[in-house]
Computed example of a mutant assay.
Amino acid sequence: MKSCKVYIAGHTGMVGRAVVRSLERAGYGDVITADRCTIDLRDQRSVQEFFATKKPDIVIDAAARVGGILANRNFPYQFLMENLQIQNNLIDSSLDHNVQKFIFIASSCIYPESAPQPLREENLLSGPLENNTEAYAVAKIAGVKACEAIRQQYQKQFFSLVPTNLYGSFDTFGAEKSHVIPAMIRKFDEAKVNGNTPVTLWGSGRPFREFLHVDDLADAVKFAIENKMEENLYNVGTGSDLTIKALAELIQNIVGHTGEIFWDSSKPDGTARKLMDVSKLKNKGWSSSVELQDGLCKTYEWYSNNKKYI
């Protein structure tokens, strides 16, 4: 298995970088990556020519246009169309060039807003999606279903991993595109530097969220490469959650900010709770290992060492 050619699409992103690190540490000797100058994943011809040249055995689709609630609300067309273009080209080229295994990285936003907790793989398409991330979710659902169709029609190992909220090194910390953890880390750090000024956070702080360190997801990808995956869809998470308020206080303590926290309830909370049922993957032999406190400390350390470049 470790002699296979593994192409990681999206290797410059947080997930792709983590997968590259994980596979190289594990001894995979032929990990294929390509920057945007080499391949435009939105262009069908570019992707087909790349596959014809490189002939990968395994493909990890970690390429996507991603962002937080604000970015999703402001750019729904780009989140829908660019993600459809990227994943469709990768999936179709993988089928055309006889890729042995294709792993599609989906998102927990594919599940309905009102789905019962914890979220099970069977909840897919059982109700309306959360409004703020609907365009991104529709694109991801299309990718999941494309892999499922190939699996059914061609009996190939095309399947999807559905991670919960991710965080870690190389996350996006900019104000316009960041998710909750990097946004909080940056806000608390900047407030600390400016004399522990107050920090204002979106929403009420009451929603519950689950968070997975990106290194855990990368380990799950390696597990999926090395094992036969009988199902089309697998949740990847920790199986535990906490309130956004508790998360904020935890990050505030790690950063060392001692000022006040204000909550702007005029901003959206999003779904009240998003907890993953991770029993399907756990029963196959994989579970997360990075505790939230440790993962947040590692992430803040990385941010502190790299913030001047961000």
Rank of each mutant, 00 (worst) to 15 (best):
H179I: 03
D92R: 12
E176L: 12
Q100Y: 06
S93N: 08
S169V: 03
T172R: 09
G174V: 05
R120P: 00
V144S: 06
N165T: 12
R120K: 15
D171M: 04
K156C: 02
L84V: 13
R151K: 15
S178H: 02
G174H: 05
I110V: 15
E176A: 13
H97F: 15
L161Y: 01
R151P: 03
G174I: 08
V180S: 02
A137K: 00
A142W: 01
I181G: 00
T172F: 01
N123M: 10
S169Q: 11
M184P: 01
I86P: 07
G174A: 12
E121Y: 06
Q85L: 15
Q85E: 14
N98T: 14
L90M: 12
N83Y: 10
S126W: 04
S114C: 08
H179S: 06
F79R: 06
G168Q: 00
K145M: 14
I103L: 12
S178R: 03
G143I: 06
P116T: 06
N89E: 11
Q78H: 11
S160L: 08
Y111K: 12
Q117R: 06
A175S: 14
A106H: 08
E122Q: 12
D171F: 01
F79N: 13
I150A: 13
I91W: 02
L119W: 04
G168Y: 02
E122G: 04
P163H: 06
F79T: 13
V162N: 12
F173V: 04
T133A: 08
E82W: 05
D92G: 05
S169W: 00
P112C: 11
C147Y: 09
P182S: 12
K101T: 12
L166I: 04
V99P: 01
N88K: 10
S169K: 10
Q87N: 14
N88A: 14
Q100A: 15
L129K: 03
L124H: 10
P112H: 09
S93W: 01
A175R: 13
H97G: 03
F159T: 01
Y136S: 13
A137V: 09
I86Q: 11
T164D: 07
R151S: 14
E122H: 11
C147F: 07
K101A: 11
F173G: 06
T172C: 10
V180P: 00
L129R: 04
F102T: 09
Q155T: 10
N132I: 00
S126H: 07
E148Q: 14
F170R: 02
L125S: 14
R120I: 07
A106L: 11
G168N: 02
K177M: 14
E130R: 04
K145P: 02
L125K: 15
M81P: 01
P128L: 02
V180L: 14
E134G: 01
A135D: 08
Y167N: 00
Q78V: 14
Y136E: 04
M184R: 02
R151V: 00
C147R: 04
Q152V: 11
I150N: 07
D171H: 01
A115N: 05
S160Y: 04
S178M: 03
Q155W: 08
Y167A: 01
A135P: 07
I86F: 08
Y167K: 00
F173S: 02
E121M: 11
E148Y: 05
P163M: 09
K177S: 15
A115E: 02
P112N: 10
Q78W: 06
M184Q: 13
S107P: 06
T133D: 07
A137S: 15
T172Y: 07
N131G: 03
P118C: 15
Y136G: 00
